[in-house]
Design a binder for these strands. Sequence first.
DNA 1: CAACTATATCGTTATTCGACGATATACGAT
DNA 2: ATCGTATATCGTCGAATAACGATATAGTTG
Lengths: 120, 120
Amino acid sequence: MATQPIRSEETKSPTETPEDIAIAALAKALGHPARIGIVSMLLARQTCIGCDIVEEIGLAQSTTSEHLRILKAAGIITGEIERPRVCYSLNPLVLEPLRQFLNTLVPATTEKNTKPRGAN
Amino acid sequence: MATQPIRSEETKSPTETPEDIAIAALAKALGHPARIGIVSMLLARQTCIGCDIVEEIGLAQSTTSEHLRILKAAGIITGEIERPRVCYSLNPLVLEPLRQFLNTLVPATTEKNTKPRGAN
DNA sequence: CAACTATATCGTTATTCGACGATATACGAT
DNA sequence: ATCGTATATCGTCGAATAACGATATAGTTG
């Protein structure tokens, strides 16, 4: 159906650096309100077991589990199994590339605005 | 899990704060390597006309235009029309909520790894 | 052992995304 | 007026995402 990719000799290769891909993957993992909520929750409390997250997020258990899986796959959170629970906690260091990317973007203004997000 | 009460009055409202939604929207807009590349490009040069971006990104013109549209919709870039060109530039301030979110996440004692982008 | 709890996974469905080529638009230059 | 350039939009396709209920898994407790 589609005409054959003539892309043989020309340099139509998307110029995606591995760095770009890594940063985009982190941003993508954070690109859903429920996942932002989960991360915020883990920041407020130190650790959370999954069922508390399910309750607070307000989505179906299976849906929440999927969001947790995405965050885990990106390395942003870790889940320590404590059968039958799973104890989730933040692993903020993996966000460094994204964080530094953003910090280079913003015209180095005041950094002292670091108020913690309001507790839920 | 206790049988969840049927979604009658309360209970199942996804607890998404407007703040969470805003942060997630920004992250989502950055959640693609091509868009990270565009933003990086606009950071390196000060402004770019679209055709240069198309060339550097290496995707079809229509695809690149779509990525530009997404970034524009999120407010991350602006496009000033200079017919027949459009001159794009960064508007990094709108990223503040996401940036601050990340900065509260990352333990502030972890500032050692501050190498700028591009060192690969 | 049986029941309960917490979580992950499966199957499904509807929606969105990402990519492309083709086409439309709008201006400057010839 | 026609051509060329730069950009946006349309239509389409396949893939990915988000959501859910149902079910499977695995440990704890009665």
